[in-house]
Amino acid sequence: MNPLMERRLRQLRSRVLVRSWEYRQRQHARGAWFRLRRVLTFAAEAYIVSPDDARQLVAEGRRPEPAGDEFEPPKLIVFATRERVARLRGARPVPVRLTRDLLAATCLVLVPFVTPASRGRTRRA
């Protein structure tokens, strides 16, 4: 076998092994990154807010996203409508990406995409 092809094959198989190892850890700490990305995928917009504002949103009945608890320091992540976010003074919009600002934030409010089905299943937003 051509040595280069053999090396590529070995590399491919190594990546598959690593991927399987990561998959087996999906419910453990390593899976936290997937869960954070997943939550962000469903967010049309993201805002950094103060801890007081975040706690207020929770007090109003919004459930913190469990993905936020899996980081140190923990992140309080809640979904809310854009209208509700507009009433939060000091809410700072950030791109919905794994930027330094977003990762450093301890309190995030996400505005969900609204689809026909998600309207039916959305918790209080």
């Binding site: 998959y23 997937f34 919905v96």
Partner: peptide
């Protein structure tokens, strides 16, 4: 299941790309 997870994971990465 493992491959379904990879698909979902890649969709989340795609969603957050610049």
């Amino acid at each position: 299941p493992e491959l379904r997870h990879v698909v979902r994971s890649n969709l989340t990465i795609l969603s957050l790309l610049e």
